[in-house]
Every structure is written in structure tokens, then in C-alpha cells.
């Protein structure tokens, strides 16, 4: 079976859930080889199916943006001739993927939400036009380079050989042009990751800037907290909370929109959620076109009552 290269993301050494999802998807195509820049917990990579683990330890990968990783990965692709290359569809992942694809003259798919294999043919699924269309596509040139969104598969443990191979690669000077001057790791909110959570409770302009009720409901449900761009633009929540076209795409089991009108750009980030609930005082708000259940009312009275009722039921 041929090798499938999987770019692993492991901020502060901790392998992300989307990276494990990629290992699971890679096994549909061939034998997963994890590619790690910096430190990562190799035991967990092995547990989730990595046959090989290529590690790059040079600090240059943390000092300069994107280009060094792309050079190294493209060289590995040339060397190993993999059946496919899978990367997380993150800001950095997509840029690395694009450069690797161009260098290896291979087609590129970004933002895949599923990857299926039928008789050797790899087909990807993507969402288009704010989630209004599902698109099936194939790469027609070279070994497919596919950037996959979080939550596209459930990570399945399946012990691999986990053979670690430290790769030394001379990063060309030309790739050392964009210097990372400072880096501030994101502080955890203590709540589930927005893109990984089973339940997301979001607030919009309708919160008037007070997210207390939204957060209380989120905590009662064990949910992640999200926000509309209006809430982010107002400075009420950092950009990492934003759901939508220029924020995160979420597809949880349950999405609760509070004081959010439901603009197309917001829908783009949430309309594939399994169950959608909204609270909005305007019965004409477009969000109600999407919902399984909606309450026309003020979040200031509806949310505390809901939170109290949930707490009561939990006993």
C-alpha cells in the first residue's frame, strides 16, 4: 500500500483533534505517515494509525512563516511519491498545501468536509455558496493535496508502527523572508473548542455586549461560545469566537443563535449544523428560516429561564 503524508498540527506539542481525524481519513487511501514540525506527542500519532512519523526539529520552522514548511514538505513529496497529501484546512495548513501542490504540480482541494475512496479514486466533498451547495470533486493531476476541515471524520484509534524518522532538510534562504517577530498562543477559554464542540451557543448584536446569559446557557449545556461578526466588530468577543464566512465554520449537533439576525455570511459558518435553535425578538429575522425551533422573545428573559430549567432538570 502506498504512503499518505499527513501534516500534523501540534501547538505546544499537543496534537490537535483535526490532525487525528486526518490520520483516520488517510487510512482510507493508504498507509498514513505523520509529518511533524517541532515537538509532538508521537505516542498518540502511533495510537491513531501513523506507520511512519517524519519529524523536523529545526527552529527555522517557528521563526519564519509558511515557506520553510512548504519547502520541506514538497521535498518529502518528491522523495516519497505519496498517494496523497492531507493537511488541516487551517490558515497555515491551506497555504502550505497550496505551495506544496504548485511545487509538485498536483491538484489542490481546500476545505474538504469528507474524503471517500472508491477503487483507488479519491473524491472530496466541499460546501459552496455559504453551505447552500454540496460539491463533489476529484484531483486530475498529480497526487491529490487535500486540506480537510475539522470534524470531517471521527478519529479512530488503530495502532500503527509509529516508526520515527528525523529528517534533516536545508531550508533555502529564499524561504526565510517572512519573520515571525512575536507569537502569542491562544489562551484556552476552558470551554470546548468552537470547531470541535457538539453544541455551540452564539451571541450577536442582540446581546448588547453582555454575553453573561449566553455563556451561562452554554455552560449549562456544556457548549462552546460563538459570536457573530457584529459582536466581534463591537469588541465584545475576540475574532477567534467568530462564526461565519470570515470566521469559523461549525457543524455541531446543536447550534443556538441568540440575538443574531442570520445574514448570509453568518449562515455560511453554521447552516450545516444538525439542529438549529434561535432566540430573537424580531419574528421577521431571517435566522428563523433555518431553525428547527425558534423563540420570538428577548434573550434577557428567555435565556435565564432556559438555563434555570436545564439546571433544574439536571437536578
Amino acid at each position: 500500500m502506498s504512503e499518505v503524508l499527513v501534516l500534523i498540527e501540534a501547538p505546544q506539542g499537543k496534537v490537535t483533534k483535526p490532525s487525528l481525524e486526518l490520520l483516520t481519513i488517510a487510512r482510507r487511501i493508504g498507509e498514513p505517515s505523520a509529518v511533524v514540525f517541532g515537538d509532538a506527542d508521537t505516542a498518540v500519532l502511533t495510537e491513531y494509525g501513523a506507520e511512519k512519523i517524519y519529524t523536523y526539529s529545526d527552529s527555522v520552522y517557528e521563526e519564519y512563516l509558511v515557506a520553510p514548511k512548504a519547502e520541506a514538505l514538497a521535498a518529502l513529496v518528491a522523495d516519497k511519491a505519496p498517494a496523497a497529501v492531507l493537511v488541516p484546512s487551517s490558515t497555515e495548513g491551506k497555504e502550505v498545501a497550496a505551495r506544496v501542490a504548485l511545487k509538485s504540480q498536483s491538484g489542490l482541494i481546500t476545505d474538504a468536509v469528507d474524503v471517500t475512496v472508491d477503487g483507488g479514486a479519491i473524491t472530496t466533498t466541499q460546501m459552496a455558496f455559504a453551505g447552500n451547495f454540496t460539491v463533489a470533486a476529484q484531483v486530475t493531476k498529480g497526487a491529490p493535496v487535500i486540506a480537510v476541515k475539522p470534524n470531517s471524520a471521527a478519529p479512530e484509534a488503530a495502532a500503527g508502527a509509529g516508526a520515527v524518522e528525523a529528517v534533516s532538510f536545508d531550508v533555502p534562504e529564499s524561504a526565510k523572508a517572512v519573520k515571525i517577530v512575536s507569537s502569542e498562543p491562544r489562551v484556552s477559554t476552558g470551554r470546548p473548542e468552537l470547531t470541535e464542540a457538539a453544541i455551540v451557543v452564539s451571541g450577536g448584536r442582540g446581546t448588547g455586549g453582555d454575553f453573561t446569559e449566553v455563556e451561562a446557557l452554554a455552560d449549562a449545556l456544556g457548549a462552546a461560545v460563538g459570536a457573530s461578526r457584529a459582536a466581534v466588530d463591537s469588541g465584545w468577543k475576540p475574532h477567534t469566537f467568530q462564526v461565519g464566512q470570515t470566521g469559523k465554520t461549525v457543524s455541531p449537533q446543536l447550534y443556538v443563535a441568540n440575538g443574531i439576525s442570520g445574514a448570509i455570511q453568518h449562515r455560511a459558518g453554521m447552516q450545516t449544523s444538525k439542529t438549529i435553535v434561535a432566540v430573537n425578538k424580531d419574528e421577521e429575522a431571517p435566522i428563523f428560516e433555518l431553525v428547527d425551533f425558534g423563540v420570538v422573545g428577548d434573550i434577557k428573559s428567555v435565556l435565564p429561564q432556559a438555563t434555570e430549567e436545564i439546571t433544574k432538570r439536571k437536578g
Binding site: 501547538p11 490537535t16 512563516l65 487551517s90 490558515t91 497555515e92 519573520k179 517577530v181 507569537s183 502569542e184
Partner: peptide, 9 residues
């Protein structure tokens, strides 16, 4: 970024 905010130059 998803995991960190960088200043780059």
C-alpha cells in the same frame, strides 16, 4: 491564527 496570534514582518 487558529492556535496563536503572530506578529510577522
Amino acid at each position: 491564527g487558529d492556535a496563536a496570534t503572530h506578529e510577522i514582518e
